Computed example of a mutant assay.
Amino acid sequence: MAAVLVAAPFVGLYPVFMMKVMCFALFACAFNLLLGFGGLLSFGHAMFFGSAGYVTAHAAKVWGLTPELAILLGVAAATVLGWIAGKLAIRREGIYLTMITLALAQMVYFFALQAPFTGGEDGIQAVPRGRLLGLIDLSQPLAMYFFVLAIFLGGFLLIYRIIHSPYGQVLKAIRENEPRTTSLGYDTAKFKHRAFVLSAAIAGLAGGTKALVFQLASLTDVHWSMSGEVVLMTLVGGLGTIFGPVIGAAIMVGMQNYLAQLGAWVTIVQGIIFVVVVLLFRRGIVGEIGAAIKKSL
């Protein structure tokens, strides 16, 4: 995967398109950590993605911070929001937890719509990319591309390590059978809350990076439809797989980009593909491939 992404801009793939794929792939991987390995369905993950984008954009444009500090500030904001949302959401289970996350996300959306520093419906525009560490000019497309690539691979490896750590094994046990995990002496509420915070932080990393790539933080990133899109990406690629969210994000972003001339029909096409995947590939694309070759992907 790393080799393909490094070679992508040199074989004719548009760098901005690939950067968008990587941002959404990292977002989907963060969501998959919570749902695919923790069994916690959030319909409000856009609040972490979008809020980090707003904080990053504001810090870079108004406060003049360097890109790495602006993104870190966005991640910190998403982490705090994830800590609060997690504390409230894990008090309930199933559909009730899901609806709590959706309600919290809508609160964040209306805050972004009304707050004076967010720019309302216009968002925060013309966000400067700045110089990485004060040295590398990120206004150059190739420099920005490899900066985003480094962030994506770092986030992906972090998730990979979390999944394969003792903590990750307990998280899977909670997903499979929470009462039995509790009987083994694990504080499942604490584990679920940590998963919420970790997922929110990595989603915030993706959101902050996207704000710099497109030099824009907008209401689209905190809208409930963004939370729905990341669910689609994860399910299409393969829930509970390592590479599934990456493939799912590439497919969804690719459809939005290359089928743009269809206008509103893009949503119809996405819906049809989602239905086909759910009916024919219950494990998702990567999940079915992994099952066929009997290897965890």
Rank of each mutant, 00 (worst) to 15 (best):
R283S: 07
I136L: 15
A78N: 13
M144Y: 00
V197Q: 07
L157G: 08
Q140W: 14
L40Q: 13
Q169F: 12
Y96C: 07
K192C: 09
F156S: 08
L153K: 05
E178R: 10
V62P: 09
T56V: 03
A105N: 13
F147M: 14
M226E: 14
A189W: 13
A89R: 00
L26Q: 06
I174H: 03
T267Q: 13
F37A: 00
R92K: 15
P141Q: 11
L198H: 04
A70Q: 03
I251Q: 04
G36R: 06
Q261Y: 12
A126L: 12
T79P: 00
F191E: 04
I84K: 10
G44E: 13
L138V: 10
L262W: 14
V230P: 02
A76M: 04
L235D: 01
A173W: 12
F110G: 02
G254V: 15
I242A: 04
L102N: 05
L97M: 08
V231A: 08
T241H: 03
G240K: 05
T101M: 07
G44F: 04
E178D: 04
E121T: 14
Y167Q: 12
A78Y: 07
A291N: 12
W63P: 06
Y167S: 08
G74C: 06
V275S: 11
P67C: 03
T101D: 00
A70V: 08
A78P: 00
A211S: 14
Q114Y: 13
W224E: 11
E68C: 01
T234N: 03
A46Y: 05
R180Y: 15
G64Q: 00
G53H: 05
L232D: 07
F147Y: 15
G248H: 01
Y167E: 02
V230T: 14
Y186T: 12
R129P: 07
L41K: 01
V6R: 14
L104N: 00
I159E: 02
L205M: 07
T101R: 09
G238S: 03
Q140Y: 09
A2K: 10
M233F: 05
M255D: 11
F27R: 01
A103E: 06
I90G: 05
L184G: 04
G64V: 07
S296C: 05
L132S: 10
A250Q: 06
I268M: 13
V286I: 14
E93K: 15
A2E: 08
I174G: 02
Y160D: 11
V286R: 06
H45W: 00
M233N: 07
M107S: 13
M22Q: 01
I100R: 14
G74H: 10
V62Q: 12
I174C: 02
L198C: 03
L73T: 11
G263A: 09
S139F: 08
L132A: 14
R194N: 12
P166S: 11
G155L: 05
A150P: 01
Y96W: 12
H58F: 14
D187G: 09
V4M: 14
D122E: 15
H45M: 05
L35H: 05
G208N: 11
N177E: 14
